[in-house]
Design a protein around this nucleic acid. Sequence first.
DNA 1: CGGGACAACGTTTTT
DNA 2: CGTTGTCCCG
Length: 666
Amino acid sequence: MKHSVIDQTASPPEQDIFTIPYEQVLNPSQLEAVTTLDGPVLVIAGAGSGKTRTLTYRVARLVESGIPPGAILLLTFTRKAAQEMLRRATELLDYRCEKVAGGTFHSFANVTLRRFSAVMGFDRGFTIMDRADMEDAIAFVARGMHLDKGAGRLPRKRTLATILSKAVNKGVGVEEVVSVDYPNFMFAAQTLVRLQRIYQAYKKEHALVDYDDLLVILRDLLRDHEGIRQRLSEHYRYVMVDEYQDTNKIQADIVRLLAGRHRNVMVVGDDSQCIYAFRGARFANIMAFPQIFPGTKVIKLEENYRSTQPILDLTNAIIGRASRRYTKVLFTRKPGGTPPVLAVAEDERTQSRFVVRRIQELQTAGVPLGDIAVLFRSGFHSFDLEIELNRANIAFVKVGGFKFMETAHIKDLLAHMKVLINPEDALSWHRILLLLESVGPKAADEIFRQIVNTGNGVAALATVEPKPRYRKAFERFKATMLDLDPDRLSVAETGARIVHYYQPILERRFDNHPKRSRDLEHVLSIMAGYDTLDRFLADMALEPPTASVDGNLAVGKDHAGLVLSTIHSAKGLEWHTVFIIWALDGRFPSIYATRSEQDLEEELRLMYVAATRAQENLYISYPANIYDRTTATLLYRPSRFIDGIGEHILEPCVLTHDGDGLDMGW
DNA sequence: CGGGACAACGTTTTT
DNA sequence: CGTTGTCCCG
């Protein structure tokens, strides 16, 4: 009997086998979460309530209880979060904790699907498409549909991708997404339904998998193949999921299928911190969990260890403005603290200077730069501040926003590598063939056809008959590619040869090629850390490097530099001092979010997440008098999420800017 | 095929 | 306003 085996390994062992003093370092709720090893558990963990700590100790506890580390699966929102928890568990206990299986749903899906790729009909591997690949593929198949031009234009490819992705993540039809979110495109709804079908078929034919497919295919694999479900479920006997409020229906299904048999599953989340509904996340998953797993033990962590009471007074006031009542109220025993400040700046420059000056004062007062963060709604909100920081010689790392890996030259490099692994990848073939001089869509298509028909992978290049027009370019391409044997060459060597080949193309196509050349060098240095091409490519798609290239790269996120981050990327993190800039109504919430009640509510939660990152100091600021071109209106009110909050909770401060001076008056 | 000129569109967050 | 798609010509 399997059950008796599990019960033996997991039953509470003798007290004295534990080396970690759990009772002394955890509060009663945390302790209960950490020591309840069997059966379904739902932990509702408020901001700063020691959620990460709880998960870390629980990993250690499981391992200490004799569960083999490989039988524990820890699903988190970013891979970094998983690594960090396992690292901390290792510090608490020992090296065994490093062997726990951890990662994001997407990376877990990737490794699992590769194990069972034959079942799915991908016998030669598959390529993961990033967002830009998805858009390109959609645009490509849309062009192939030869739509009647008189019948009105389709949405742009970016919007198409958003629509198709939303339909998948919400588990609804394309028509429904269009009618709810894009009523202006209702005329094209049926075309989009067809487009979705063709796009699916296209991916299948060319062994391409987008982000959504990773989840969907894993779910289907678990649902439709009982043998595989059983194997995986017996392998991962203890499942933990972090940030459960930001999972969607498919992810909840995966958890249900994976843990349905042994029911040893703990999910941790906070409904008031759900900030990914825009891509299908449903905080309803949290409320539904006890129904899916009857007998769930519900544990609430409500004591906040992060922030001072004045900061919590503000965050409670913010979340109190939600129309939905959330499941808990936070309290702290942390003494003292000063009220958060709301700073009104005349213009953006004044706001930037205010932030820079305060940072300098904090440094003088002995606060390390790494303990300070500036948070904002959208990537571009920090541009002006970045200039001022450079001017003041303050090192920073920017997280979120700009996608280094999605720039054209980097994608060109990766496409050359992708066809080595998956020669059916039409998208990448197309991309690299178009780089050849005098090769356009038609010639690219013809060459690709010849390659695929030979069915011989990259080696098929030898048999292609180039037209005289592009013969010379083609021969150079062919010679380079035929020489790239992934079994013989290291990843970095492969990359270096491609870059060498690509250099003249780069110079011909881009004015700023010196900078792009440096980018390529940077990617080559990343390659040095990989021993197989698939691993490298999968990582670049699933966990691309985030730091920007020019100047301020270097420092890792946990060290030294000041952090500039979108609020989405700041999830789960905390700092001594937090600045929230551009808290201007019309920017935060963005005017586009002010239409629907639901979008607005998510923006409110976003403000809540931002404010709850602060331990000691919280500064919220906004530039007044910003003219918005698109709506032809003047934006001058503070964000509605903080407007009108009492002065004893959020202390107002007016920044004036005359000449070079900065006056902080009241 | 490649480049230039022009028109239309929609604007954010990320695996 | 910047990006994307289309059309036309050399």
